[in-house]
Design a protein around this nucleic acid. Structure first.
Length: 172
DNA sequence: CCCTGATTCGC
DNA sequence: GCGAATCAGG
């Protein structure tokens, strides 16, 4: 692969924006992250603040937060409005509609994981590729959580993707 | 193990 | 000049 002026410019731009070498390599295409790093050196571009885990500088820190506390207020309101519908079946559906808000219980089996909000270029063989949001909008991202056994999805989204039959109803 | 950048050195 | 292999670190 040859470093055309165009590619070099893109490299400079992305590198200055703080993207990692692998991300830049993915975006340029046809080159490895090593190639990118090698080029960066040859160009004498400024390296990253601190070796190794420059991660902190380039990447906004995501909180390793515990599950959020349920928003009881919001849930209560919605219920009130819903009840008049009457049908037993409908009642269940509406409640679930509020999801993904854990159905009160910090100890439930049903846990909606917080997504890592990864960009397309950040996905690897072992990150969840479940898309979130409108692809045409800026906030579009992928779940990005760890996916077991190189599955395309994390355990949570794998369940949504490969629903057998019975579970399907409950969630909708 | 996954990722990151840094360096070396044969091509 | 290029980049895979390797090293070092989180």
């Amino acid at each position: 692969m040859i470093w055309t002026d165009e590619r070099v410019e893109k490299l400079k731009k992305l590198w200055s924006e703080g993207l990692s070498a692998s991300q830049i390599a993915a975006q340029l295409g046809g080159v490895s992250r090593n190639a990118v790093i090698g080029k960066v050196h040859r160009l004498s571009l400024p390296g990253r603040a601190k070796a190794g885990g420059t991660t902190a500088a380039a990447r906004p820190k995501r909180a390793t937060s515990a599950p959020r506390a349920p928003n009881y207020a919001a849930r209560a309101v919605t219920r009130t409005v819903t009840r008049p519908a009457g049908a037993t079946v409908l009642k269940e559906e509406v409640v679930v509609d509020l999801a993904p808000e854990p159905d009160f219980a910090l100890e439930t089996n049903i846990v909606v994981p917080m997504s890592r909000r990864l960009e397309l270029t950040q996905l690897t063989e072992r990150t969840c590729k479940w898309p979130i949001g409108d692809p045409l909008k800026e906030e579009f991202h992928f779940c990005g959580n760890d996916s077991p056994e190189s599955s395309p999805y994390c355990s949570y989204h794998a369940r949504l993707a490969y629903q057998p039959s019975a579970e399907r109803r409950r969630i909708r």
